[in-house]
Design a protein around this nucleic acid. Structure first.
Ligand code: ZN
Ligand code: ZN
Ligand code: ZN
Ligand code: ZN
Lengths: 158, 158
DNA sequence: TCTATGTATGTAATATCATAACACGTCAAG
DNA sequence: CTTGACGTGTTATGATATTACATACATAGA
């Protein structure tokens, strides 16, 4: 679960670990990981990518769940609220959180070559941002930090 | 033009300065500030806010310009390309650049109380981000840093 | 057990944001 | 004058997201 999305790795180690952690978190908090929600999380966990709500919806519909947008959006919103998924503003898309439970305000690294999305630890970034904001008297409540660029493999290949 | 969007100020000093600078930049670069484009910039400059493309479009239509989405999007895209406007991902909206010409990769501070949008100098933020990315072998090409929170006035009022 | 309540899901309809494709007008270079 | 680049206008469509309402389902009192 602390892998390099950008490098070859046994991805089941990622997804299995996150699923277990998700179950534990939700059991603890009392929130319910219903079939739709679980399935959406599994779908997001299949790859280190961001998926649009309609892509998720299509998968759900093919598996016998509802096929109207709210079905996908509700599950996705739930996961985001529970800290199990993140919304990538830049892509109008969602990605599974790879470090659920850990307090984290990540920066997202979006590879323009292979569409991989990685969470980078961003404590220093947040600190710098809050400092810059404080200079203007502004109090940061939530922030999104998203970088487009090239992962090591795609940089190599280009 | 180096005002505090969050504080009372003579806003004409902002907009006039930016307009002059925009004209100078475009004259120099050879790009054309046509009536639609100029008007869109003026509209964006009316307030320290972000406006949706369709809001801009409505204004344009009321003034006799075309009333179809591409009219607004083309002008907005032009301004963004020329560095005269920024897109705020979080809001699906656009805001005039308050520091055109200056090389800058700003962080945006979005007040949830009054919807004011300010550009904060973000060189340290970018540096921290690039460093965090480099740790994963990732090369940043473009990044968006957007913070939601409260400006001084709204924080006071709450 | 039997409701009552809150929560989750399903669906229809609609709102909001964005782009593709094509037609027309203008203007300057050749 | 013709050509070609560019800007604008318009139609049509695509992509993303939410509102509103109906239905199912769990579970906690009575
Ligand atoms: Zn993985
Ligand atoms: Zn995360
Ligand atoms: Zn101002
Ligand atoms: Zn700017």
């Amino acid at each position: 679960m602390d892998p390099q999305p950008f490098h070859d790795h046994d991805h089941h180690l990622c997804s299995d670990a996150v699923m277990s952690q998700a179950e534990a978190m939700l059991t603890a908090s009392g929130a319910r990981l219903t079939p739709v929600r679980r399935r959406v999380l599994e779908i997001l966990l299949e790859q280190h990518r961001a998926m649009g709500a309609y892509d998720v919806l299509q998968r759900l519909a093919a598996e016998g769940f509802g096929n109207q947008p709210p079905v996908a959006y509700r599950a996705l919103d739930f996961l985001v609220e529970q800290g199990l998924a993140h919304r990538i503003q830049r892509l109008n898309a969602f990605t599974a959180c790879m470090h659920p439970g850990e307090a984290h305000a990540p920066a997202f690294l979006i590879c323009q070559g292979c569409n991989t999305v990685a969470e980078a630890p961003a404590a220093p970034v947040r600190a710098a941002l809050e400092s810059a904001a404080a200079d203007l008297g502004f109090t940061v409540e939530r922030a999104s930090v998203e970088a487009l660029g090239l992962c090591p493999a795609c940089r190599e290949a280009s």
